[in-house]
Design a protein around this nucleic acid. Structure first.
Lengths: 234, 234
DNA sequence: TAGTGAATTCAGCACGTACTGAATTCGGCG
DNA sequence: CGCCGAATTCAGTACGTGCTGAATTCACTA
Protein backbone atom coordinates (compact mmCIF):
# COMPACT_ATOMS: atom_id res chain seq x y z
CA UNK A 1 0.00 0.00 0.00
CA UNK A 2 2.49 2.58 1.09
CA UNK A 3 4.84 2.67 -1.89
CA UNK A 4 8.02 4.42 -0.78
CA UNK A 5 7.80 7.87 -2.36
CA UNK A 6 10.50 10.44 -1.97
CA UNK A 7 9.30 13.99 -2.30
CA UNK A 8 5.86 13.84 -3.72
CA UNK A 9 2.97 16.04 -2.69
CA UNK A 10 2.37 19.72 -2.75
CA UNK A 11 5.32 22.06 -2.87
CA UNK A 12 5.88 24.61 -0.14
CA UNK A 13 5.86 28.27 -0.98
CA UNK A 14 3.91 30.30 -3.47
CA UNK A 15 1.98 28.89 -6.33
CA UNK A 16 3.64 29.82 -9.64
CA UNK A 17 3.95 26.49 -11.31
CA UNK A 18 1.27 26.91 -13.90
CA UNK A 19 2.70 30.16 -15.17
CA UNK A 20 6.13 28.57 -15.13
CA UNK A 21 4.96 25.78 -17.39
CA UNK A 22 3.24 28.25 -19.64
CA UNK A 23 6.39 30.34 -20.07
CA UNK A 24 8.56 27.33 -20.67
CA UNK A 25 6.15 25.94 -23.21
CA UNK A 26 6.01 29.24 -25.03
CA UNK A 27 9.76 29.27 -25.22
CA UNK A 28 9.98 25.71 -26.48
CA UNK A 29 7.26 26.11 -29.10
CA UNK A 30 8.96 29.25 -30.32
CA UNK A 31 12.36 27.64 -30.52
CA UNK A 32 11.44 24.21 -31.81
CA UNK A 33 8.04 24.42 -33.45
CA UNK A 34 5.08 22.22 -32.70
CA UNK A 35 6.27 18.74 -33.59
CA UNK A 36 9.70 19.01 -32.10
CA UNK A 37 8.41 20.34 -28.83
CA UNK A 38 7.55 17.57 -26.38
CA UNK A 39 5.51 17.88 -23.24
CA UNK A 40 8.18 15.96 -21.39
CA UNK A 41 10.82 18.40 -22.43
CA UNK A 42 8.67 21.31 -21.36
CA UNK A 43 8.20 19.70 -17.97
CA UNK A 44 11.87 18.92 -17.63
CA UNK A 45 12.84 22.46 -18.56
CA UNK A 46 10.35 23.83 -16.08
CA UNK A 47 11.64 21.52 -13.37
CA UNK A 48 8.27 19.92 -12.97
CA UNK A 49 6.69 16.52 -13.36
CA UNK A 50 5.45 15.71 -16.87
CA UNK A 51 2.06 14.80 -15.50
CA UNK A 52 1.54 18.36 -14.34
CA UNK A 53 1.56 19.61 -17.90
CA UNK A 54 -1.28 17.34 -18.91
CA UNK A 55 -2.94 18.09 -15.61
CA UNK A 56 -3.05 21.82 -16.20
CA UNK A 57 -3.41 22.12 -19.91
CA UNK A 58 -4.86 18.88 -21.21
CA UNK A 59 -3.59 17.80 -24.60
CA UNK A 60 -0.51 19.11 -26.37
CA UNK A 61 -2.65 21.13 -28.74
CA UNK A 62 -4.49 22.70 -25.82
CA UNK A 63 -1.15 23.71 -24.38
CA UNK A 64 -0.12 25.22 -27.67
CA UNK A 65 -3.31 27.18 -27.97
CA UNK A 66 -2.90 28.53 -24.46
CA UNK A 67 0.56 29.74 -25.19
CA UNK A 68 1.12 31.19 -28.66
CA UNK A 69 1.59 34.90 -28.91
CA UNK A 70 3.29 37.52 -30.98
CA UNK A 71 6.27 39.57 -29.83
CA UNK A 72 4.56 42.84 -30.56
CA UNK A 73 1.49 44.67 -29.54
CA UNK A 74 -0.30 44.74 -32.86
CA UNK A 75 -2.43 47.71 -31.95
CA UNK A 76 0.51 49.92 -31.06
CA UNK A 77 2.44 48.85 -34.13
CA UNK A 78 -0.48 49.65 -36.35
CA UNK A 79 -0.90 53.00 -34.67
CA UNK A 80 2.73 53.89 -35.15
CA UNK A 81 2.80 52.80 -38.73
CA UNK A 82 -0.42 54.37 -39.90
CA UNK A 83 0.22 57.71 -38.23
CA UNK A 84 2.44 60.07 -40.16
CA UNK A 85 2.73 60.81 -43.84
CA UNK A 86 0.77 58.59 -46.10
CA UNK A 87 3.52 58.07 -48.62
CA UNK A 88 5.92 56.70 -46.05
CA UNK A 89 3.79 54.11 -44.27
CA UNK A 90 5.49 51.44 -46.34
CA UNK A 91 8.99 52.14 -45.17
CA UNK A 92 7.81 52.75 -41.63
CA UNK A 93 6.22 49.33 -41.58
CA UNK A 94 9.20 47.67 -43.21
CA UNK A 95 11.62 49.30 -40.79
CA UNK A 96 9.52 48.32 -37.81
CA UNK A 97 9.21 44.74 -38.97
CA UNK A 98 12.92 44.41 -39.62
CA UNK A 99 13.89 45.95 -36.30
CA UNK A 100 11.61 43.56 -34.50
CA UNK A 101 12.78 40.50 -36.36
CA UNK A 102 16.46 41.36 -36.21
CA UNK A 103 16.23 41.06 -32.46
CA UNK A 104 16.54 37.41 -31.68
CA UNK A 105 14.35 37.64 -28.62
CA UNK A 106 11.47 38.97 -30.65
CA UNK A 107 12.14 36.78 -33.62
CA UNK A 108 11.72 33.56 -31.73
CA UNK A 109 7.98 33.50 -31.28
CA UNK A 110 7.43 34.65 -34.84
CA UNK A 111 9.60 31.93 -36.26
CA UNK A 112 7.95 29.47 -33.92
CA UNK A 113 4.56 30.53 -35.13
CA UNK A 114 5.58 29.89 -38.71
CA UNK A 115 7.09 26.56 -37.80
CA UNK A 116 3.95 25.50 -36.04
CA UNK A 117 1.73 26.72 -38.84
CA UNK A 118 3.62 24.71 -41.41
CA UNK A 119 3.63 21.47 -39.48
CA UNK A 120 0.28 21.25 -37.74
CA UNK A 121 -2.86 21.99 -39.77
CA UNK A 122 -4.80 22.81 -36.66
CA UNK A 123 -2.10 25.26 -35.66
CA UNK A 124 -2.23 26.79 -39.12
CA UNK A 125 -5.92 27.43 -38.60
CA UNK A 126 -5.25 29.12 -35.29
CA UNK A 127 -2.48 31.24 -36.72
CA UNK A 128 -4.68 32.22 -39.62
CA UNK A 129 -7.48 33.26 -37.33
CA UNK A 130 -5.10 35.16 -35.10
CA UNK A 131 -3.44 37.04 -37.93
CA UNK A 132 -6.75 37.85 -39.52
CA UNK A 133 -8.44 39.02 -36.37
CA UNK A 134 -5.57 40.96 -34.84
CA UNK A 135 -3.63 42.27 -37.79
CA UNK A 136 -5.33 41.99 -41.15
CA UNK A 137 -8.64 43.40 -40.08
CA UNK A 138 -7.24 46.29 -38.00
CA UNK A 139 -4.96 47.35 -40.79
CA UNK A 140 -7.83 47.05 -43.21
CA UNK A 141 -9.92 49.35 -41.05
CA UNK A 142 -7.20 51.92 -40.63
CA UNK A 143 -6.52 52.26 -44.28
CA UNK A 144 -9.42 53.88 -45.95
CA UNK A 145 -8.78 52.27 -49.28
CA UNK A 146 -10.62 49.71 -51.31
CA UNK A 147 -9.93 46.00 -50.87
CA UNK A 148 -8.16 46.65 -47.63
CA UNK A 149 -8.12 43.02 -46.54
CA UNK A 150 -6.62 41.88 -49.80
CA UNK A 151 -3.95 44.55 -49.44
CA UNK A 152 -3.22 43.45 -45.91
CA UNK A 153 -2.93 39.89 -47.12
CA UNK A 154 -0.34 40.88 -49.69
CA UNK A 155 1.60 42.65 -46.96
CA UNK A 156 1.49 39.60 -44.74
CA UNK A 157 2.75 37.44 -47.58
CA UNK A 158 5.80 39.64 -48.12
CA UNK A 159 6.54 39.88 -44.42
CA UNK A 160 6.19 36.16 -43.88
CA UNK A 161 8.32 35.52 -46.92
CA UNK A 162 11.04 37.80 -45.65
CA UNK A 163 11.02 35.97 -42.33
CA UNK A 164 11.32 32.65 -44.09
CA UNK A 165 14.01 33.71 -46.53
CA UNK A 166 16.13 35.92 -44.30
CA UNK A 167 15.81 34.25 -40.92
CA UNK A 168 14.76 30.64 -41.31
CA UNK A 169 16.23 29.45 -44.58
CA UNK A 170 18.94 32.08 -44.61
CA UNK A 171 19.10 32.84 -48.31
CA UNK A 172 22.14 34.93 -49.16
CA UNK A 173 22.84 37.75 -49.52
CA UNK A 174 19.44 38.57 -48.12
CA UNK A 175 20.28 37.09 -44.75
CA UNK A 176 23.34 39.19 -44.07
CA UNK A 177 22.33 42.36 -45.84
CA UNK A 178 22.06 45.45 -43.65
CA UNK A 179 18.59 45.98 -42.31
CA UNK A 180 18.33 49.57 -43.50
CA UNK A 181 18.70 48.75 -47.17
CA UNK A 182 16.25 45.93 -47.12
CA UNK A 183 13.81 48.20 -45.34
CA UNK A 184 13.92 50.62 -48.24
CA UNK A 185 13.34 48.00 -50.91
CA UNK A 186 10.74 46.16 -48.92
CA UNK A 187 9.10 49.41 -47.88
CA UNK A 188 8.39 50.37 -51.45
CA UNK A 189 6.63 47.08 -51.96
CA UNK A 190 4.57 47.41 -48.82
CA UNK A 191 3.72 50.98 -49.72
CA UNK A 192 2.27 49.86 -53.02
CA UNK A 193 0.43 46.97 -51.43
CA UNK A 194 -1.08 49.25 -48.82
CA UNK A 195 -1.95 52.37 -50.76
CA UNK A 196 -0.89 52.01 -54.38
CA UNK A 197 -2.79 51.04 -57.49
CA UNK A 198 -3.70 47.41 -57.63
CA UNK A 199 -5.10 45.17 -60.31
CA UNK A 200 -8.64 46.03 -59.30
CA UNK A 201 -8.21 49.49 -60.68
CA UNK A 202 -7.16 48.23 -64.07
CA UNK A 203 -9.52 47.46 -66.92
CA UNK A 204 -10.22 43.78 -67.38
CA UNK A 205 -8.19 43.22 -70.52
CA UNK A 206 -4.99 44.40 -68.92
CA UNK A 207 -5.03 41.90 -66.12
CA UNK A 208 -2.26 39.96 -67.72
CA UNK A 209 -4.32 37.38 -69.60
CA UNK A 210 -1.90 37.55 -72.50
CA UNK A 211 0.90 36.41 -70.28
CA UNK A 212 -0.30 32.88 -69.86
CA UNK A 213 2.37 30.37 -69.60
CA UNK A 214 3.85 28.30 -72.34
CA UNK A 215 3.66 25.24 -70.11
CA UNK A 216 6.84 23.69 -71.32
CA UNK A 217 8.73 24.03 -68.08
CA UNK A 218 6.34 22.47 -65.66
CA UNK A 219 7.25 18.91 -65.19
CA UNK A 220 3.96 17.58 -63.97
CA UNK A 221 5.61 15.37 -61.49
CA UNK A 222 5.93 11.98 -63.00
CA UNK A 223 8.98 11.59 -65.23
CA UNK A 224 12.05 13.66 -64.40
CA UNK A 225 14.22 12.97 -61.45
CA UNK A 226 16.99 15.41 -62.01
CA UNK A 227 16.60 18.58 -60.03
CA UNK A 228 17.51 16.91 -56.80
CA UNK A 229 18.70 18.64 -53.68
CA UNK A 230 22.08 17.56 -52.46
CA UNK A 231 23.90 14.52 -53.59
CA UNK A 232 22.01 11.94 -55.63
CA UNK A 233 20.91 8.70 -54.00
CA UNK A 234 23.78 6.40 -53.29
CA UNK B 1 17.15 -22.59 -35.76
CA UNK B 2 14.54 -22.68 -38.45
CA UNK B 3 12.20 -19.98 -37.17
CA UNK B 4 8.87 -20.43 -38.94
CA UNK B 5 8.70 -17.53 -41.39
CA UNK B 6 5.77 -16.99 -43.70
CA UNK B 7 6.71 -15.16 -46.84
CA UNK B 8 10.11 -13.77 -46.26
CA UNK B 9 12.91 -13.72 -48.81
CA UNK B 10 13.27 -12.19 -52.19
CA UNK B 11 10.20 -11.25 -54.16
CA UNK B 12 9.51 -12.79 -57.54
CA UNK B 13 9.29 -10.57 -60.59
CA UNK B 14 11.03 -7.39 -61.58
CA UNK B 15 12.99 -5.24 -59.22
CA UNK B 16 11.26 -1.91 -58.65
CA UNK B 17 11.16 -1.70 -54.91
CA UNK B 18 13.79 0.93 -54.41
CA UNK B 19 12.14 3.33 -56.81
CA UNK B 20 8.82 2.56 -55.19
CA UNK B 21 10.15 3.54 -51.80
CA UNK B 22 11.68 6.66 -53.25
CA UNK B 23 8.41 7.78 -54.81
CA UNK B 24 6.43 7.04 -51.71
CA UNK B 25 8.91 8.89 -49.53
CA UNK B 26 8.82 11.89 -51.83
CA UNK B 27 5.07 11.96 -51.59
CA UNK B 28 5.07 11.69 -47.81
CA UNK B 29 7.73 14.33 -47.27
CA UNK B 30 5.83 16.65 -49.56
CA UNK B 31 2.54 16.06 -47.84
CA UNK B 32 3.65 15.89 -44.24
CA UNK B 33 7.02 17.59 -43.94
CA UNK B 34 10.10 16.11 -42.37
CA UNK B 35 9.11 15.49 -38.77
CA UNK B 36 5.69 14.10 -39.44
CA UNK B 37 6.96 11.69 -42.04
CA UNK B 38 8.01 8.38 -40.53
CA UNK B 39 10.05 5.70 -42.19
CA UNK B 40 7.56 3.12 -41.03
CA UNK B 41 4.72 4.96 -42.69
CA UNK B 42 6.69 5.25 -45.90
CA UNK B 43 7.31 1.52 -45.84
CA UNK B 44 3.67 0.75 -45.07
CA UNK B 45 2.48 3.01 -47.85
CA UNK B 46 4.90 1.37 -50.25
CA UNK B 47 3.80 -2.10 -49.17
CA UNK B 48 7.27 -2.97 -48.04
CA UNK B 49 9.06 -3.91 -44.87
CA UNK B 50 10.32 -0.98 -42.77
CA UNK B 51 13.78 -2.47 -42.67
CA UNK B 52 14.09 -2.09 -46.41
CA UNK B 53 13.95 1.68 -46.14
CA UNK B 54 16.92 1.79 -43.82
CA UNK B 55 18.56 -0.89 -45.92
CA UNK B 56 18.43 1.15 -49.11
CA UNK B 57 18.74 4.69 -47.89
CA UNK B 58 20.40 4.63 -44.50
CA UNK B 59 19.16 7.27 -42.09
CA UNK B 60 16.01 9.28 -42.40
CA UNK B 61 17.96 12.36 -43.43
CA UNK B 62 19.71 10.38 -46.13
CA UNK B 63 16.33 9.34 -47.43
CA UNK B 64 15.16 12.93 -47.43
CA UNK B 65 18.22 14.11 -49.29
CA UNK B 66 17.77 11.43 -51.91
CA UNK B 67 14.23 12.44 -52.55
CA UNK B 68 13.55 16.17 -52.49
CA UNK B 69 12.97 17.88 -55.77
CA UNK B 70 11.15 20.81 -57.27
CA UNK B 71 8.12 20.46 -59.53
CA UNK B 72 9.64 22.60 -62.23
CA UNK B 73 12.64 22.61 -64.43
CA UNK B 74 14.32 25.75 -63.17
CA UNK B 75 16.32 26.27 -66.33
CA UNK B 76 13.30 26.22 -68.61
CA UNK B 77 11.34 28.48 -66.28
CA UNK B 78 14.15 30.98 -66.21
CA UNK B 79 14.44 30.85 -69.98
CA UNK B 80 10.77 31.45 -70.44
CA UNK B 81 10.64 34.28 -67.97
CA UNK B 82 13.72 36.16 -69.03
CA UNK B 83 12.96 35.99 -72.71
CA UNK B 84 10.56 38.62 -73.99
CA UNK B 85 10.10 42.24 -73.14
CA UNK B 86 12.09 43.49 -70.24
CA UNK B 87 9.31 45.42 -68.62
CA UNK B 88 7.08 42.38 -68.36
CA UNK B 89 9.40 39.80 -66.82
CA UNK B 90 7.76 40.51 -63.47
CA UNK B 91 4.27 39.55 -64.47
CA UNK B 92 5.54 36.63 -66.53
CA UNK B 93 7.31 35.26 -63.51
CA UNK B 94 4.38 35.90 -61.21
CA UNK B 95 1.96 34.24 -63.61
CA UNK B 96 4.21 31.24 -64.04
CA UNK B 97 4.67 30.82 -60.31
CA UNK B 98 0.96 31.09 -59.62
CA UNK B 99 0.02 28.65 -62.35
CA UNK B 100 2.47 26.16 -61.02
CA UNK B 101 1.40 26.52 -57.42
CA UNK B 102 -2.31 26.56 -58.15
CA UNK B 103 -1.95 23.01 -59.43
CA UNK B 104 -2.04 20.80 -56.41
CA UNK B 105 0.23 18.21 -57.97
CA UNK B 106 2.97 20.77 -58.42
CA UNK B 107 2.30 22.53 -55.17
CA UNK B 108 2.94 19.49 -53.03
CA UNK B 109 6.69 19.23 -53.29
CA UNK B 110 7.09 22.96 -52.90
CA UNK B 111 5.02 23.05 -49.76
CA UNK B 112 6.86 20.00 -48.53
CA UNK B 113 10.16 21.70 -49.12
CA UNK B 114 9.07 24.66 -47.03
CA UNK B 115 7.75 22.39 -44.32
CA UNK B 116 11.00 20.52 -44.17
CA UNK B 117 13.06 23.69 -44.21
CA UNK B 118 11.20 25.09 -41.26
CA UNK B 119 11.42 22.02 -39.10
CA UNK B 120 14.84 20.52 -39.72
CA UNK B 121 17.88 22.82 -39.73
CA UNK B 122 19.86 20.39 -41.83
CA UNK B 123 17.04 20.36 -44.35
CA UNK B 124 17.00 24.14 -44.33
CA UNK B 125 20.68 24.11 -45.26
CA UNK B 126 19.99 21.76 -48.16
CA UNK B 127 17.07 23.81 -49.39
CA UNK B 128 19.13 26.95 -49.17
CA UNK B 129 21.94 25.44 -51.17
CA UNK B 130 19.54 24.08 -53.71
CA UNK B 131 17.70 27.35 -54.20
CA UNK B 132 20.91 29.30 -54.39
CA UNK B 133 22.63 26.99 -56.83
CA UNK B 134 19.69 26.28 -59.12
CA UNK B 135 17.60 29.42 -59.00
CA UNK B 136 19.21 32.45 -57.43
CA UNK B 137 22.49 32.22 -59.28
CA UNK B 138 20.99 31.46 -62.71
CA UNK B 139 18.56 34.32 -62.43
CA UNK B 140 21.36 36.53 -61.26
CA UNK B 141 23.40 35.64 -64.31
CA UNK B 142 20.57 36.17 -66.74
CA UNK B 143 19.75 39.62 -65.52
CA UNK B 144 22.49 41.97 -66.40
CA UNK B 145 21.86 44.26 -63.50
CA UNK B 146 23.75 45.16 -60.40
CA UNK B 147 23.31 43.20 -57.18
CA UNK B 148 21.61 40.41 -59.06
CA UNK B 149 21.81 37.93 -56.21
CA UNK B 150 20.27 40.34 -53.78
CA UNK B 151 17.47 40.97 -56.25
CA UNK B 152 16.91 37.28 -56.71
CA UNK B 153 16.77 36.87 -52.94
CA UNK B 154 14.04 39.48 -52.68
CA UNK B 155 12.11 37.65 -55.37
CA UNK B 156 12.46 34.38 -53.51
CA UNK B 157 11.22 35.98 -50.32
CA UNK B 158 8.04 37.22 -51.99
CA UNK B 159 7.41 33.93 -53.74
CA UNK B 160 7.97 31.91 -50.59
CA UNK B 161 5.77 34.31 -48.66
CA UNK B 162 3.00 33.94 -51.17
CA UNK B 163 3.22 30.18 -50.88
CA UNK B 164 3.04 30.40 -47.13
CA UNK B 165 0.21 32.91 -47.00
CA UNK B 166 -1.95 31.65 -49.86
CA UNK B 167 -1.42 27.93 -49.76
CA UNK B 168 -0.19 26.85 -46.34
CA UNK B 169 -1.72 29.25 -43.85
CA UNK B 170 -4.57 30.22 -46.14
CA UNK B 171 -4.89 33.89 -45.29
CA UNK B 172 -8.05 35.35 -46.75
CA UNK B 173 -8.92 36.82 -49.13
CA UNK B 174 -5.53 36.06 -50.58
CA UNK B 175 -6.17 32.35 -50.61
CA UNK B 176 -9.31 32.42 -52.69
CA UNK B 177 -8.53 35.41 -54.87
CA UNK B 178 -8.35 34.70 -58.60
CA UNK B 179 -4.89 33.89 -59.75
CA UNK B 180 -4.84 36.46 -62.50
CA UNK B 181 -5.32 39.45 -60.23
CA UNK B 182 -2.69 38.36 -57.77
CA UNK B 183 -0.34 37.82 -60.66
CA UNK B 184 -0.66 41.45 -61.64
CA UNK B 185 -0.04 42.82 -58.17
CA UNK B 186 2.73 40.39 -57.43
CA UNK B 187 4.22 40.87 -60.87
CA UNK B 188 4.75 44.56 -60.27
CA UNK B 189 6.68 43.74 -57.12
CA UNK B 190 8.83 41.13 -58.80
CA UNK B 191 9.45 43.47 -61.70
CA UNK B 192 10.84 46.09 -59.37
CA UNK B 193 12.89 43.55 -57.48
CA UNK B 194 14.37 42.19 -60.67
CA UNK B 195 15.00 45.31 -62.74
CA UNK B 196 13.84 48.38 -60.85
CA UNK B 197 15.68 50.92 -58.75
CA UNK B 198 16.77 49.59 -55.42
CA UNK B 199 18.19 51.18 -52.33
CA UNK B 200 21.70 50.84 -53.68
CA UNK B 201 21.01 53.49 -56.24
CA UNK B 202 19.85 56.00 -53.68
CA UNK B 203 22.09 58.46 -51.88
CA UNK B 204 22.96 57.42 -48.37
CA UNK B 205 20.82 59.90 -46.49
CA UNK B 206 17.65 58.71 -48.11
CA UNK B 207 17.98 55.15 -46.97
CA UNK B 208 15.29 55.60 -44.41
CA UNK B 209 17.44 56.31 -41.40
CA UNK B 210 14.98 58.91 -40.23
CA UNK B 211 12.30 56.30 -40.00
CA UNK B 212 13.65 54.51 -37.01
CA UNK B 213 11.13 53.09 -34.76
CA UNK B 214 9.60 54.62 -31.70
CA UNK B 215 10.07 51.36 -29.86
CA UNK B 216 6.95 51.62 -27.84
CA UNK B 217 5.12 48.78 -29.47
CA UNK B 218 7.66 46.04 -29.12
CA UNK B 219 6.91 44.07 -26.08
CA UNK B 220 10.30 42.62 -25.45
CA UNK B 221 8.91 39.34 -24.46
CA UNK B 222 8.59 39.26 -20.76
CA UNK B 223 5.47 40.90 -19.39
CA UNK B 224 2.30 40.93 -21.46
CA UNK B 225 0.18 37.89 -21.91
CA UNK B 226 -2.65 39.29 -23.88
CA UNK B 227 -2.29 38.78 -27.57
CA UNK B 228 -3.04 35.12 -27.39
CA UNK B 229 -4.15 32.92 -30.23
CA UNK B 230 -7.44 31.17 -29.77
CA UNK B 231 -9.25 30.82 -26.55
CA UNK B 232 -7.44 31.54 -23.29
CA UNK B 233 -6.25 28.67 -21.16
CA UNK B 234 -9.07 26.85 -19.50
C1' DT C 1 22.67 -27.21 -62.54
C1' DA C 2 24.96 -25.50 -58.43
C1' DG C 3 26.31 -21.66 -55.80
C1' DT C 4 26.63 -16.90 -54.63
C1' DG C 5 24.87 -12.77 -53.43
C1' DA C 6 21.15 -9.56 -53.55
C1' DA C 7 16.45 -8.84 -51.94
C1' DT C 8 13.28 -9.25 -48.55
C1' DT C 9 11.10 -10.17 -44.06
C1' DC C 10 10.83 -11.06 -38.98
C1' DA C 11 11.52 -10.04 -34.57
C1' DG C 12 13.14 -7.03 -31.57
C1' DC C 13 15.97 -3.39 -29.07
C1' DA C 14 16.28 0.90 -27.00
C1' DC C 15 14.17 4.82 -26.56
C1' DG C 16 10.78 8.74 -26.80
C1' DT C 17 6.09 10.06 -26.97
C1' DA C 18 1.29 11.50 -24.93
C1' DC C 19 -1.31 10.52 -21.34
C1' DT C 20 -3.46 8.34 -16.80
C1' DG C 21 -4.54 6.72 -11.91
C1' DA C 22 -3.38 6.48 -7.54
C1' DA C 23 -0.81 8.06 -3.75
C1' DT C 24 1.15 11.72 -1.12
C1' DT C 25 1.85 16.33 0.75
C1' DC C 26 0.68 20.79 1.75
C1' DG C 27 -2.16 25.41 2.09
C1' DG C 28 -5.99 27.37 3.79
C1' DC C 29 -10.42 27.38 6.03
C1' DG C 30 -13.67 26.03 9.64
C1' DC D 1 -6.41 21.87 15.67
C1' DG D 2 -8.74 18.99 12.01
C1' DC D 3 -9.97 18.41 7.57
C1' DC D 4 -10.87 19.08 2.63
C1' DG D 5 -9.27 19.93 -1.60
C1' DA D 6 -5.66 21.54 -4.49
C1' DA D 7 -0.96 20.61 -5.83
C1' DT D 8 2.43 17.54 -6.90
C1' DT D 9 4.89 13.19 -7.91
C1' DC D 10 5.45 8.16 -9.06
C1' DA D 11 4.88 4.57 -11.68
C1' DG D 12 3.00 2.76 -15.42
C1' DT D 13 0.37 1.89 -20.03
C1' DA D 14 0.16 1.76 -24.68
C1' DC D 15 2.15 3.08 -28.57
C1' DG D 16 5.33 5.13 -32.17
C1' DT D 17 9.96 6.01 -33.47
C1' DG D 18 14.65 4.98 -35.92
C1' DC D 19 17.36 1.34 -36.60
C1' DT D 20 19.66 -3.58 -36.54
C1' DG D 21 20.90 -8.70 -37.07
C1' DA D 22 19.76 -12.85 -38.53
C1' DA D 23 17.15 -15.79 -41.39
C1' DT D 24 14.98 -16.85 -45.67
C1' DT D 25 14.00 -16.79 -50.62
C1' DC D 26 14.85 -15.74 -55.11
C1' DA D 27 17.57 -14.18 -59.55
C1' DC D 28 21.47 -14.57 -61.92
C1' DT D 29 25.71 -16.38 -63.51
C1' DA D 30 29.66 -19.71 -63.81
Amino acid sequence: MKRPAKHTGRRPGRNTTRALIEDTAREQFAKLGYDRTSMRRVALEAGVDPALVSHYFGTKLDLFIAVVELPIDPGALIDHVTSGEHDSVGIRLATAVLEILDDEVNRRPTVGMIRAATSEPEAARLVREFLTRNIIVPIAQRLETDHAEYRAGLVMSQVLGLTLARYIIGIEPLASHPRERIAVDLGATLQRYLLGDLSHTLPIDQKGADHELAPRHVRHALPARQATVGRPAS
